[in-house]
């Protein structure tokens, strides 16, 4: 479980996080939702200890992030970090050389899943395929938790569908996933937990099936209530 407890973060004078609290379980997909600039990426960076927090606590399976727990998590940023002149195959090789947790079998399977060719250059890929390669490089690591920053942003509908299919497959099974997004429509029925952020705090956190069952509301219905008050 990833526990984010009362986390605050300032950038200069700007208080981006004003006491954010939520948990994300293993085996579940937790979706951080909020309009742009609300601090979603900052939260992911804070979980990865890539950005220092001003106060609060973040626990991974009960302890603060350390070298061991760092190897249990992977962060997939919203843009690919490989050099444009590299091919997909070279990027995979790079990851394999760099990360002990690289799972070549799963990587090969993902190539097929996304219908990507290893000889293609990163620079020649469409936006959708770039997003898929980016995702592949993260998903192929044997980690317990995956943090994905805006995996659906700015790509075509078919690529979005293909990426969404990853979440229902064994490629993600039993892992804990946190994704940030501001487009929920395609994935409403795929996610377990929803965390709605606004103005640096969590305004509502709920299980999507429970809100449908107990209140007869869709995730978007709840968002409308929260954000359009």
């Amino acid at each position: 479980m990833i526990e984010v407890k009362d986390v605050t973060k300032k950038f200069g004078r700007k208080q981006v996080l004003k006491g954010v609290t939520f948990t994300a379980e293993k085996g579940e997909i937790t979706c951080l939702i909020g309009i742009n600039g609300v601090g979603k990426t900052t939260i992911l960076n804070a979980i990865m200890a890539l950005t220092p927090i001003n106060s609060g606590q973040i626990l991974i399976d009960g302890s603060a992030i350390n070298k061991k727990s760092y190897e249990k998590i992977t962060f997939i940023p919203d843009a690919i970090t490989m050099l444009p002149q590299m091919t997909i195959g070279q990027s995979m090789q790079f990851m394999q050389d760099f990360y002990e947790s690289w799972n070549q079998e799963r990587a090969t399977e993902l190539l097929g899943f996304f219908k990507l060719k290893p000889e293609e250059k990163i620079s020649s890929l469409s936006k959708g395929n770039t997003a898929k390669v980016n995702l592949l490089l993260g998903l192929a690591l044997d980690v317990d938790y995956l943090l994905m920053d805006e995996p659906f942003s700015g790509i075509d509908i078919f690529s979005r569908e293909q990426i969404a299919n990853v979440f229902t497959s064994h490629l993600v099974e039993d892992r804990g996933v946190i994704i940030t997004t501001h487009e929920i429509n395609d994935i409403e029925h795929l996610i377990d937990q929803v965390v709605l952020l606004d103005d640096g705090v969590v305004v509502k956190a709920f299980n999507s099936e429970e809100v449908r069952e107990n209140e007869g509301k869709s995730v978007v219905d709840v968002m409308r209530e929260v954000y359009q008050q």
Partner: peptide
């Protein structure tokens, strides 16, 4: 459960439920 989640494109926990 896994195959169903895959076929219907639903969350595996939902298929389980």
């Amino acid at each position: 459960r896994r195959e169903l989640a895959n076929q219907l494109k639903i969350n595996p926990n939902t298929a389980q439920r």
